[in-house]
Design a protein around this nucleic acid. Sequence first.
DNA 1: CAGGTTAGCACC
DNA 2: AAACGGTGCTAACCTG
Length: 593
Amino acid sequence: MKQHKRIVDGTTVLVNVVETPDELPALHRFLDGKPLVGVDSETTGLDIYSDGFRCRLVQFGTDDESWVVPVDKGGEFRYAARHALKNINRMVLQNASYDLQVFDRALGVPMETLWPKVIDTSILAHLTDPRGVKEGGVGLSLEDLTRHHIDPDVADEVKGLMNVLRLQHKTTKAHIWKIIPLDDPQYELYAGIDPVLAFRLYRKLMPLVPGESKNLIRQEHELAAVCSYIERTGFLLDIEYTEELSQRFRDVEEAHLWTARELGCENIFSTEQLADTLESRGHTITEFTPTGKRKVDEALLGTLAAGGDELAQAVVKAKKARKWRTTWCDRFLAGADSEGRCHASINPLQARTARMSITGIPAQTLPAGDATIRRCFLSDPGQVMASVDYQAQELRVLAALSGDQTMIRAFQRNEDLHQITADASGVDRKIGKMVNFAYVYGSGPRNIAEQGGIEVDVARKVIAGFEKKYPKVKELSQRLQKQAVATGYITTPFGRRLPVDRERPYSALNYMVQSSSRDITAQALLRLHEQGGTRFVRLPIHDEVLASVPQEKAVEAAGWIGRVMATEFKGVYIGTDPEVGGRSWGSLYGSDY
DNA sequence: CAGGTTAGCACC
DNA sequence: AAACGGTGCTAACCTG
């Protein structure tokens, strides 16, 4: 057995690396009876569901000792790691969703058996301070948390490690974790340190979680589990359609790039080159970016294209085709597993407001006005797509939080809130709707004017009309701003503490509304899970749950999901709107199939 | 080659 | 008096 030593925050950590099967009983003696163990894994990459993905090491640790098990050697090592995972009382991990999916997929240990005993330090960290480093917080990665809470030198070394190993082994970032020899001493050492860091972070972070947020610890662990199950299930991709679509976009792009080249622009994706060519064609560019560069955006190109400029027309079409092909089609195809399923990565606790984020299948940012891209995804065989979203979730949450009777009554009587806002100032419904949302975003007169295509004076008048019509909303915003300036944070009814930058107190209202809305959706997911609905869920998307449900009972299933999700918040009913489509996600957006 | 920043686009 | 909140992804461009 090999051993390494490293001082972490003044205490020596002993890393034991198992080399032969006869050393495994010592591992089990180490773990036996421990109430809490830090756990981590090293893998061939992040693509858990692709062919050839392997788990290479599994590491177990406490505050001053750890054990590294080379499961990639197979046989007894894999068996020992599986046995250890199953028998641990409680385990602490940083971002458990990842490792648990690895253990499930690569070692055959079902996530269901491990989640009940998991403590995830990334959850504790988010509840303590949800801000990333750029936002003035300590950050949420193991590296950032280690830097702030444990040992900055260790954090820096962990950060530099990949580069060191990459150079030593003459390879790239993309390949190093696949090819690094299992017995590389630095690899072993840092693999062994990670579960120790997770273990120590737990001790440091637990007391820092605000008292009012304690109830969220359980909620967030359950939610993380549910989201990991949704990730594992994946979303069926229509590969044939997606490949064809990709090729179609490629052809369109090629044709227009050809035209652009003939008109004198080699690379339309270089804003500088494009600006030069447009100017040489007699156009003057009057807008500039914050750094003083000529601004060539869709607004300018659209105007020029409408005016008949052939280059602008070609550029608009080529850019769209490229974007749709690379960002959507090719990405989906690259991410599909051998069964044709794409596994999104859901971070249930991403934003400062705890809003979730979805990557891999960037479901929150797919084009909504057109079914083409969503048509790529299918319900399972024998099932159809269903979507259940909350009706006016954020505005109802605003009504509930503020207790504004005008707003609450409007919702109770099913009146048109956007029209009410519009009537308060004698403007079009369209402006009323825009202001309803913009007010929650903290927009000022200038911004509202620009967005609505109205004069700043009119915007001021509409804001004043909004505040007069819904006085309690204004009161709430002011109360939150005061709180934010005085303490640096606000606390939501769910017990979540949200830091507010003192130079942007107006964002407090939005944080409150966005975060409360997120927690309403989160709790709905937990209710769905308790009642056995998770296997149907494909993705949670803000105020919506997207599902694949049995065709024969689709309407009933969607209605059931809608009833489970519907809820009351501070006396205000937040209802749902179930919709049933056909085989593809696109069918909910107008596609035939 | 990797990482960060800027710009632009998509969504709620 | 005024204040646009949050997210992801790609490409270009600069720097170490």
